[in-house]
């Protein structure tokens, strides 16, 4: 195995900063002197960058609202804690000694859920959430950026769709 073959085995790991110090120094020294290995290093960097860009481009239109709706739907299919309590109470009815607990527990639960709003499932998020979007003949993208708490609804004109949909007049005072 030539020097270059050996160095090229380690090039990726060296670029990733995963080689021990001594070996890292050896690779660095070689790459500084060898044009072929320096070119190979650039090819690896380009490959990684191109892969990242390609995937970033393919998920950039993945709007958060429909994505989260899918997750939320799965979560909702599970029994809620409240439902589990009611199920537990229903089972309790089968035992006469604790049957009286059912109406009392129901009163407590209803009172709790109707007065204590900002707790558990109801704690507010500090970012805007888009509950529905209807683009009339427009493609609509939803961008959300958590760091700056930015929510953007973006409209893209889509001539084909626009032509297919007849203009729908709407009175400005109509409640929608």
């Amino acid at each position: 195995m030539s020097d270059c073959d050996r160095i090229q085995e380690w090039l990726g790991a060296w670029l990733d900063g995963e080689l021990p110090q001594a070996r890292s120094a050896e690779v660095k020294l070689h790459v500084e002197k060898c044009a072929a290995c320096a070119a190979e290093k650039v090819r690896i960097q380009r490959l990684d960058a191109a892969l990242k860009r390609a995937l970033e481009a393919r998920v950039s239109d993945a709007a958060f609202a429909p994505f989260w709706a899918g997750v939320r739907e799965r979560i909702a299919q599970e029994k809620s804690p409240r439902q589990r309590v009611f199920d537990w109470m229903r089972r309790g009815v089968a035992f006469p000694r604790i049957a009286w607990g059912v109406p009392v527990a129901a009163v407590v639960l209803i009172a709790l859920f109707s007065t204590i709003r900002p707790s558990g499932w109801f704690v507010p998020s500090n970012q805007a959430s888009v509950e529905s979007i209807d683009g009339h003949g427009f493609n609509v993208a939803l961008l959300r950026e958590a760091k700056t708490k930015t929510t953007v609804i973006w409209l893209f004109e889509n001539q084909e769709t626009e032509d297919e949909n007849p203009v729908e007049p709407a009175a400005s005072e109509q409640a929608f």
Binding site: A128, I133, H136, I153, L155, V167, A170, F176
Partner: peptide, 26 residues
Amino acid sequence: RLLEGEKPIVDTTVRFPNKGNFLLGG
């Protein structure tokens, strides 16, 4: 609802923190 003349361009329902904002562009 954003309209161009009488034609609706987009309808949306958004919930955000009091005194907060969101952007609608394009």
